[in-house]
Design a protein around this nucleic acid. Structure first.
Lengths: 227, 227
DNA sequence: TGGACTAAAAGTGTATGCACTTTGAAGGCC
DNA sequence: GGCCTTCAAAGTGCATACACTTTTAGTCCA
């Protein structure tokens, strides 16, 4: 494609080009639409998005950093194989990260943060009874974010956020299990109680077990429904 | 530079070009040779390494992923400011990651792994007395790697390795403190004892405090010597 | 027929040019 | 004089061309 003086598509300039492709490709890889082991041809992808290979290459770098593809010099990139074992390992790491956050929350959260956490948690009881699962899902996201922030440990928070975003696609199923919101709320209750009391180890234990419970739920759902 | 048919420098092809620049630039940023906030001009760097702007752009992506520079669309990249606060936050996260590893070690290490850990630890006592600090440093690196591996949690291990590598440049000073190896060994001793007994929480506590001790030592050294 | 060499095809990495955005400074307007 | 407008210079992002590597297919010889 020639560079015409007045190119119609207003969106040039990175921030849309690369990011747009990135999120689309990432979704397709994670959803399994593109099978693990598939070789990604830069030229084909460039054509598909009507761009040149240069931004595609940049996107490959990002995909590689996200662990979704493997890059080998002069050999192109292939879609990484996210096995069940790796998925479990990611959940396990997530549970440890969140447990560490909760531990620090118990020690460091300000009074305002503690009160806000408790209030939000109590309010959510209404969602468990009356709300849609997607409402509860939004609350749940917010609840865990509070734990990351409450640790007052920016790097730990970033690790938790990064890991959560890598797990995100696999968590979609979680709240489709009928009883999950109610159980989730009860588990949260133990976490909140421990944090309010300043019991660091109890908060860590409760959080670790909560996240592993989520992992198990997801796994069961995946097994039964062959996602 | 024109693309001549027979270019003298044998090393073309990525794997050296980008990686080479990356490690040099990363070192310069971390060592403070390039001040935080400095704007990195792609063209200048390309000239310096006698390459075009394309591989430099790719390297920028890597630097950005490493958190060493900040990228803003159409605004170029600027060297990130690694403040003392962020450094402390990274050590804190490191201590939580290693504590999590140690906890899992206590629960999961095989008999062989436990014995190897203990043996290696006992052998290191000799280094504390007779060896150079650099010998001890090598052992220490190995010791902590055993903890990551012993967790049998690949993703957690990767997080620990990645964080350690980001902290690496700041750890150089650590063992220059005269008594540090001896103290370090004693702290290791508590960790090993807890793992051998299978006491998960004790292993976590001992490891957390050990890593924070390292952090404090480094901080003191940095303060005193204005590294 | 099977193995190894060879050559072409396919595909990756880098150089360069051009379009676009940002930035900063000079000139016009109030 | 201060503020907005305008325009040029600097610098980023993408397209394309080309150099180099890997892979594949074909051919020759045993």
């Amino acid at each position: 494609m020639k560079n015409l003086p007045a190119l119609s598509t207003a969106k040039l300039r990175e921030g849309t080009t690369v990011d747009g492709m990135l999120s689309i490709l990432a979704d397709e890889i994670i959803s399994g639409e593109i099978a693990p082991g598939t070789k990604l041809d830069a030229r084909v992808i460039a054509e598909r998005f009507s761009v040149s290979r240069t931004p595609v290459r940049e996107m490959f770098g990002h995909l590689s950093a996200m662990g979704l593809v493997e890059k080998r010099p002069n050999r192109g990139v292939t879609v990484a194989n996210i096995t069940d074992e790796l998925l479990m390992a990611m959940y396990e790491a997530m549970s440890e990260l969140e447990a560490a956050c909760a531990r620090l929350c118990a020690l460091r959260m300000t009074l305002e943060e503690r009160q806000a956490l408790q209030r939000s948690h109590k309010d959510a009881l209404r969602l468990v009874r009356d709300g849609t699962t997607s409402d509860y899902e939004a609350f749940n996201h917010d609840f865990h974010t509070r734990l990351y922030e409450g640790s007052h440990s920016p790097y730990l928070r970033d690790l938790a956020l990064a890991t959560r975003s890598r797990l995100k696609p696999f968590r979609k199923a979680q709240f489709r299990m009928p009883q999950r919101p109610s159980l989730s709320w009860q588990e949260h209750d133990a976490i909140v109680a421990a944090i309010m009391e300043g019991d660091a180890e109890a908060a860590a234990r409760a959080t670790r077990s909560h996240v592993m419970q989520v992992s198990i739920s997801t796994q069961h759902y995946v097994d039964e429904h062959r996602i």
